[in-house]
Amino acid sequence: MTTDLEIDRTPTSRNWVKVGFYLISVVFNLCLIAQLLTVGVAYFVNPGWWATHIWLVRGYSGLSLILLGWVFITPFSPKIQRLTASLPVLLGLQFCSIHLKSPLHLEIFHPLIGFALVYISSTLVHSVGRSYSPSP
């Protein structure tokens, strides 16, 4: 005789799709953390790390678009959809804040947007992870 918990753990194609989304969101989050660490090293230790900081964002920013497409073809909660949709928006603001020069000095928002990205990405990872945890 099987219990409901055993039936829920049976792998289905829908579960694998959600696990894939979760894994990519974890990779995205780890890349953000690495980028935060490289900017600290570049500022406080060795300016040569700026190249790594820039290389990282160019390397992982496409993951936000993959997650964005993925979240709308897989049944996720509206909260997870909103968190995912905000990632490419914030990355776009990051690019604008550092590359657009204006008399308003909008570049001051670059680190704040970066911390918002880390926060939202971490919240996304935890929200998706909790969606798999069996309810007590």
Rank of each mutant, 00 (worst) to 15 (best):
S102Q: 04
S135A: 11
S25M: 08
L65F: 14
S127R: 04
V125Y: 01
P111M: 12
G62C: 06
L68C: 12
G59Y: 04
R82L: 15
I33P: 00
V27K: 01
L106N: 01
R130N: 09
V89H: 03
S121H: 00
L37I: 13
L112T: 05
K79Y: 11
E107T: 07
P103F: 12
T74S: 09
T52Q: 02
A42N: 02
L5W: 11
V125K: 01
C96L: 15
P136F: 05
S131F: 06
S77D: 07
P11W: 10
S102A: 07
P88L: 08
I108A: 05
L67P: 00
Y132W: 15
W49F: 15
S102V: 10
S86A: 08
L93C: 06
T3K: 11
T10N: 12
Q35Y: 02
P75Q: 10
L87N: 00
L91G: 02
S97N: 09
G129T: 02
F28Y: 03
T38L: 12
W49R: 04
G59Q: 03
F72S: 02
A34H: 00
K18H: 14
K79L: 15
N29T: 14
V128A: 00
H126Q: 13
I54D: 05
P75F: 06
C96H: 01
T38G: 03
T2P: 11
T123H: 01
G62H: 04
E107V: 13
Y43F: 08
T12G: 09
S133N: 01
P11M: 13
G48T: 05
Y60C: 10
H110I: 11
Y60N: 06
I33A: 13
Y22D: 02
L90R: 02
L83M: 09
V17R: 14
P134F: 10
M1R: 11
F76W: 13
S135Y: 05
R130T: 06
P78Q: 11
T52F: 06
F72W: 12
G20Q: 09
L104P: 00
F72P: 01
T38W: 05
P111Y: 08
G59L: 08
T123A: 08
Y43S: 08
S77K: 06
S86P: 00
L32W: 01
Y60M: 12
